[in-house]
Design a protein around this nucleic acid. Structure first.
Length: 563
RNA sequence: CGCGAGGUAGAGCAGCUCGGAAGCUCGCCGGGCUCAUAACCCGGAGGUCACAGGUUCAAAUCCUGUCCUCGCAACCA
């Protein structure tokens, strides 16, 4: 049996706000499903994530909240953990970048890059806010547009006339946080020499051509066409990881320099140097990064370049980039209150498994997609209730009503009497779980979900064709037992293959209705799903509906709860 | 010539990487079943796969051009 080592990372969420469904769909959920699948398949997988704690915005937010940055971060991190729990996102660890371990790993990472000769220093002019003690990036400055005179123009672009310009040209620049005057200062920064790394990086990207999703590959290649340039990795703000170099006192690393290193430091936090060695320095370990499309550049260009310069850690096997999720045709927006924000889910009546299933069905794997309540209702009723849940219900009902829960036959007993319908059923049981496994392993979640529902449909069609209720009525008891025995085996397989997406419902049906030990996601159980091997005297329990049908009223009350 | 994504049945989408008789869900029409949460199963109507060229024995799929739609300050995957 194969026992692959896999490390899964989900993008570190910016600590400065609570996640909405878009975040869930872009990284947490697919990574969770991927991890659950591999565990169930018997592979050795670790899932790490956390919060990205540094950067100007979180520093300012903490200040506004009247908290010390680390207190602010701790409280936000705790809230996110709760949300993840609600959504049944099963991290092995959910930490962040505001830890001693992270500081140590990042510092070492930088020292290696520096030692290997991939850094350079440059001086430039920057705007500062003396009141907030931070350097002001273009988007944190406003002033008077040199072209049209608009007085709320940004550092590099005017929203009114649309023109772009150099920061030098902006008149009367001010800090966008406090509104006070911004002053120009000479400052020195460290750059990473991406230009020197381009050949190696390009070779790596080329080797991923058939592995990555097309949009990830093409977005990455754009950088090569323009040619990589040295990129600044330090900032003049008082919040972050200090640059360990003489002459750079008071400066910290740019948030996007230290954030991806967080994957490594969080792994270390979980399992020490031993685990880092096992997952990041072991060629037999596959690394999967789950991210949204706005993060592709960082995971497919900058972080791998950093790794190539550092020479200590392996690069990702796959950078799984997702597109964006919209909400009822509009973009998610915190300020305009558009979308579903996950803190609302905690006290709502929404069925998390049903929500997970719907989200999978609309995963923006290849292009942006749209969440609609109507779609959620449809998926729940047509797929989960009508196809998936219904199959368990009909099968278990008949076994209970007619045979007191135990059929008293096994595969050997029915072998002699198999007809074409039975063989098609057996064929489905022995092949569908493998197809589904392949799709999960290839991160094709939508297709895997579709295949699971098709699998359930095969079961429903089989029941229709064989009509065991008629067989029983006509006294054809052996034939009815044969049909229901095969259905029962399919039910078991259906619980196993859907467990990565529906962890709660499949666990429930496994123990309470199918009356099996353990859980459908137990390691290595996946391989069992293709076998027809339920014991002769196995007794199942009376079923009860797995998923509740949603009517318009239920949808309306959900809308109210989640708005 | 800013960048990116997309245009496939009434609606929403898959298929396009690796060309080979147009698929899925819903809706609509007709039929079947009654074990099941009025669930399930079968059949049918409905598409010049945006348009125009090209390559090919064969194009939704590859190439070229055209038209149209959407996103691109900030929060933000």
């Amino acid at each position: 049996m194969n026992n692959k080592k896999i490390l899964v990372t989900a993008a570190l969420l910016y600590v400065n706000g609570l996640p909405h469904l878009g975040h869930v769909v872009g990284c947490w959920l697919p990574a969770d499903i991927f991890t659950r699948f591999h565990k169930s398949y018997g592979n050795d997988v670790v899932y790490v994530s956390g919060t990205d704690d540094h950067g100007t915005a979180s520093y300012v937010s903490a200040k506004e909240a009247g908290m010390a940055p680390s207190d602010y971060i701790a409280s936000m991190n705790a809230k996110m953990k709760e949300i993840a729990k609600t959504l049944c996102i099963n991290f092995d660890i959910f930490s962040g970048t505001n830890t001693a371990v992270h500081k140590e790993v990042t510092t070492d990472f930088f020292n290696e890059i520096h030692k290997n000769g991939y850094t350079e220093e440059k001086c430039s002019q920057m705007l500062f806010c003396e009141h907030d003690h931070i350097a002001l990036a273009d988007r944190f400055v406003f002033g008077v547009c040199p072209y049209c005179g608009y007085d709320k123009a940004y550092g590099d672009q005017c929203d009114k006339c649309g023109k772009t310009y150099e920061l030098d040209d902006l008149k009367a620049p001010k800090c966008s946080f406090c509104g006070k005057e911004a002053v120009k200062k000479e400052t020195k920064h460290i750059y990473i020499s991406l230009d020197k790394l381009q050949p190696q990086l390009q070779a790596w990207v080329e080797s991923k051509k058939d592995v990555w999703r097309p949009h990830v590959y093409s977005m990455t290649n754009k950088w090569f066409k323009e040619g990589l340039k040295p990129r600044c990795i330090t900032r003049d703000i008082p919040w972050g990881i200090e640059v360990p170099l003489a002459g750079f006192e008071g400066k910290v690393f740019y948030v996007w320099f230290d954030a991806p290193i967080g994957y490594i430091s969080i792994t270390k936090e979980l399992g020490g140097d031993e685990m880092v060695k096992d997952r990041w320095q072991n060629d037999d370990c596959q690394i999967y990064n789950f991210i949204g499309k706005d993060n592709i550049d960082f995971h497919a260009v900058f972080f791998p370049s950093m790794q190539l310069a550092c020479k200590k850690y392996n690069l990702a096997t796959n950078v799984v980039g997702f597109n964006f999720l919209n909400f009822e045709g509009q973009k998610f927006s915190k300020s305009n209150h558009i979308g579903i924000f996950c803190d609302k889910l905690q006290n709502s009546s929404v069925d998390i498994d049903a929500l997970r299933a719907y989200l999978v069905s609309i995963f923006p794997e290849n292009k942006d997609s749209d969440f609609t309540y109507e779609g959620f209702k449809l998926n729940t009723n047509a797929e989960l209730v009508g196809k998936y849940g219904n199959f368990f219900n009909r099968t278990l009902n008949m076994i209970n009503k007619n045979f007191e829960g135990a059929l008293g036959v096994d595969f050997d007993d029915i072998k002699a009497s198999l007809d074409q319908n039975d063989n098609e059923m057996i064929d489905a049981i022995s092949t569908c779980p493998n197809t589904i496994a392949d799709l999960f392993a290839k991160t094709e979640f939508k297709a895997a979900y579709k295949e699971i529902m098709r699998f359930a449909s095969i079961g429903n069609t089989y029941l229709e064709k064989t009509a065991p209720w008629t067989l029983i009525k006509n006294g054809n008891i052996d034939a009815a037992k044969k049909v229901l025995y095969l259905c029962l085996n399919m039910a078991k397989a259906l619980a196993i293959v859907a467990s990565p997406i529906l962890p709660n419902k499949t666990a429930e049906i496994w123990t309470e209705q199918l009356n099996f030990e353990g859980s459908p996601s137990d390691a290595g159980l996946w391989q069992e799903s293709t076998k027809i091997c339920i014991a002769k005297n196995h007794k199942v329990n009376l079923p009860k509906p797995l998923f509740a049908r949603l009517d318009d009223e239920a949808i309306q009350s959900l809308k109210n709860e989640l708005a």
